[in-house]
Design a binder for these strands. Structure first.
Lengths: 344, 344
DNA sequence: AATTAGCACTCAACACATCCGAGTGCTAAC
DNA sequence: GTTAGCACTCGGATGTGTTGAGTGCTAATT
């Protein structure tokens, strides 16, 4: 998009976007006149608005109504006109209060999601940390029956995954010892990504006589690793979305879409930028075509790990929400780094 | 409610309830005539309907409309008229497919919730197992930094809880050993309910010199125990509720109510029966006054442990859903019992 | 050439009137 | 006790004005 808009057009566009974000009603030339810093007649504004509409930056719900920003209008606003507002103290306090000292990643993220949803009055998405270089920190095997054990895996990012595993032989102390020997020497400290099925097979081959009894356990560990390597998506405050008139129509579809995390995951993981804003149809999912997303990555120990973001109507208060999301991702990243990497 | 309705009134009431459950539209005397097994004129049916209405079993949305069952009408139907339909093979297959062999409680319940929501086209609630006699099965302490450790607690019901704990001294091997000594001898095997703060204090008092360094860790363990003792509520398929016209009006309120689990928890834990049906205003929450709940307990190892259920409009297909919920609770109970208590 | 006043025009939203028909309650006959 | 018949009710759909915010265009003004 060329940046060739006259100063006045820019001011008008910005004012329309901001007013519309506030009110949700189409903006007419008269009411706009009162808000604009310069003194021009409504007729002039109408002319400018007509040109902005011709450029595709504004649209009209119907002939006799005011204008609302088009998707490109929002885009232009965000890229060129918006100046981010600092996070106000009240929000900052709320965040501090909700998150406190942090804790394990899952709690932390659930708190972060809740507070973000609450603060923005939108739905909040969050994914658990899952970087390339995540390692296995600990593996535990807890017998819970004569032939069943619970396997627990803890990653270097603080994610805990567990699974029940049934074996054909009864679980004895020597079996446990052999399991711990193998896992401690071969698996703990390895990257999650390295523990795929083929690696397990070569590992199993080297076990000799023990292979038979250990195999199902190791297979389960491999599954756990696979599980842990993949980010979990959390969603908070979906009900907030029901409050927006413009989403009401496809509320059901939208909720249904959000429920099954697959496509959302695809969208999130395609985000390579620091803060990513997707407006309406800019994403490829029909169900989200009336919605905007603001997504931001958080880093743990210097590595890109997970994502936090909000989903709401296109009429989001970007100037406020973008800084909010960024602030929260920074905070989460910092807290997680401190919890998981402090080696002072 | 007296059981003094004439046979014919019973048939009529049953037919109205069943038709209304199907269509969601008020039922008129004419259309009812075609459905009823006996041959009577619409006028007769009208007379009977008027009497049923006088008894409070039916109500009229407005004068010139058909009748719909009142809450007491549903109640009478469920208690006296309904004959539960066997679970059809298709549903049974779906359940088997979704749940498979089971696994840990959390996965199992999430699967159960999903399939229940899917099967019933309602929202499904589920709580993790948390009985009186749940015990601590294992406690692990995993250093994740020089002064932080992750504490992990596994209960006899298979619930895993974790927490990050920071200590003031650096974490050394001797500290770990002392921690494991204390926990293994004093805490593992104890009931969750016994590990309250006061018990921890007397325990701490007996530690002598170690108290200082161990105290924060033990306090964290106590918190974990408290956490684990309390059932977590899961909710699935909330979006299903958006499909019902009669819920649309207060959809936002309803979702908001479900989101914050507190009151729902109160409702669930007050359920002492095998299968409990709450119709409309029978519960004390305004937000649920247009909804019905079907709740059922599942037992693990012979003890009442958790609850599964559905939430939907009052117009639920009770004859189908009650058996479905019961079947699923039985299955979940059986699988969890097998995973957690098999000592053959 | 840009701006503005003025004006005719558009169209959603609202109010109001009308009609329709499903369904009722009642009465009188069976 | 049951039924046919009928007057009556009332929500929902349909139709018709009316209103008013907002537009686009033209012609006058700066």
């Amino acid at each position: 998009m060329e940046n060739e808009l006259s100063e006045r057009k820019q001011k008008i566009l910005a004012a329309i976007v901001e007013q519309y974000i506030r009110s949700g009603e189409p903006i007419g030339s008269k009411s706009l006149m009162e808000v604009l810093p310069m003194k021009v007649s409504s007729a002039t504004i109408r002319n400018e608005m007509a040109e902005l509409a011709a450029l595709g930056l504004l649209e009209q719900p119907h002939t006799s109504a005011g204008r609302i920003p088009s998707h490109s209008g929002y885009r232009y606003y965000i890229d060129h006109l918006m100046h981010a507002r600092e996070l106000d103290d009240d929000s900052r306090r709320k965040i501090e209060a909700a998150i406190g000292e942090g804790g394990d990643p899952e709690h932390l993220l659930s708190k972060a999601g809740e507070v973000l949803a609450d603060l923005t009055n939108c739905a909040a998405v969050s994914t658990t940390p899952a970087g390339e270089s995540t390692k296995i920190r600990r593996i535990e095997m807890v017998p819970v029956g004569s032939r069943t054990a619970m396997l627990v895996l803890l990653t270097s990012t603080g994610i805990l995954k567990s699974r029940i595993c049934r074996v054909d032989t009864s679980i004895t102390v020597p079996l446990l010892e052999r399991f711990y020997n193998v896992t401690a020497s071969q698996l703990v400290g390895r990257a999650l990504a390295d523990v795929h099925t083929t690696a397990m097979q070569t590992l199993a081959a080297s076990l000799g006589a023990d292979a038979f009894s250990l195999l199902p356990l190791l297979a389960a560990v491999a599954e756990l690793a696979r599980d842990a390597a993949q980010a979990d998506i959390r969603l908070d405050g979906q009900s907030n979305l029901l409050g927006y008139r413009e989403l009401e129509e496809n509320a059901y579809e939208l909720m249904e879409f959000l429920r099954n995390g697959e496509p959302l995951n695809a969208l999130i993981s395609s985000n390579k930028e620091d803060v990513h804003v997707l407006i309406g149809k800019e994403n490829r999912f029909r169900q989200l075509s009336n919605s905007s997303l603001i997504l931001a990555r958080y880093d743990v120990g210097g590595e890109e790990s997970g994502t936090l973001g909000v989903i709401g109507p296109t009429r989001l208060d970007y100037a406020k929400l973008i800084p909010s999301v960024r602030y929260l991702t920074d905070l989460v990243g910092r807290l997680l780094t401190r919890s998981m990497h402090d080696e002072e």
